Amino acid sequence: MKRSQTVRLLMMSAAPVLLTACESQEDAVLYKDVTECVASARLTEDQCKAAFDHAKSEHERVAPRYTSGSDCETDFGSGKCQQVNQGAGIQWIPVMAAYALGYYAGRPNYYQSQPLYYSRTSYGNSGGYINSGGQPVAQSTGATKVSRSAIAAPTRAVTVSRSGFGSSSSARGGWGGGGGS
């Protein structure tokens, strides 16, 4: 490959990382389940349940989809994927491991919840929570600061044609932005 092509490819691949680094940070809280949310005393039980239910319904709609269970388990671990059949044939999706609540400045009672998945490779060799687009959100549950795009409402599911993380992955829709091996 020509040197100019290599430089151009490196610049293009670095752009999302650089843009995310410049992006404003937002407050968010990650919970594994409704019980953890209620125990934090930030929201009422009804609010925690409503946020969980919303994230769960989004999970069915936007979870990354794999054509094989082994590809899904490569990214998320053994027993961490489930089979679904939603009109496009049999596919595999990771189980929802947690949900994130993002709070919006100037609107203290408004939050957006979204499903999160625990990826074994999202932070290098140590795992962490990612959103449905494969973007790392946090390594553990609790209060955190995240980029606005990491907690933005997901728009659609992404079909992963190979393992979702790593430099050799191939996907439609922007999946595969996490750490690699």
Rank of each mutant, 00 (worst) to 15 (best):
Q91D: 10
Q91T: 00
Q91C: 05
W92N: 05
I93E: 13
P94R: 04
P94S: 09
P94N: 08
V95L: 12
V95A: 01
M96V: 01
M96D: 05
M96S: 03
A97P: 11
A97L: 07
A97K: 09
A97F: 09
Y99A: 10
Y99C: 10
Y99N: 05
A100V: 15
A100P: 00
A100R: 02
L101K: 07
G102T: 11
Y103H: 07
Y103I: 03
Y104A: 05
A105T: 13
A105L: 07
G106E: 03
G106V: 07
R107P: 00
R107T: 11
P108K: 02
P108G: 03
N109G: 12
N109W: 11
N109C: 06
Y110K: 06
Y110D: 08
Y110W: 09
Y111T: 06
Y111V: 01
Y111C: 06
S113P: 13
S113N: 10
Q114S: 14
P115E: 07
L116H: 04
L116D: 00
Y117C: 10
Y117M: 09
Y118E: 12
Y118D: 09
Y118F: 15
Y118L: 13
R120F: 07
S122I: 08
S122P: 02
S122L: 09
S122F: 02
Y123H: 14
Y123V: 08
G124C: 09
N125K: 13
N125S: 15
N125E: 14
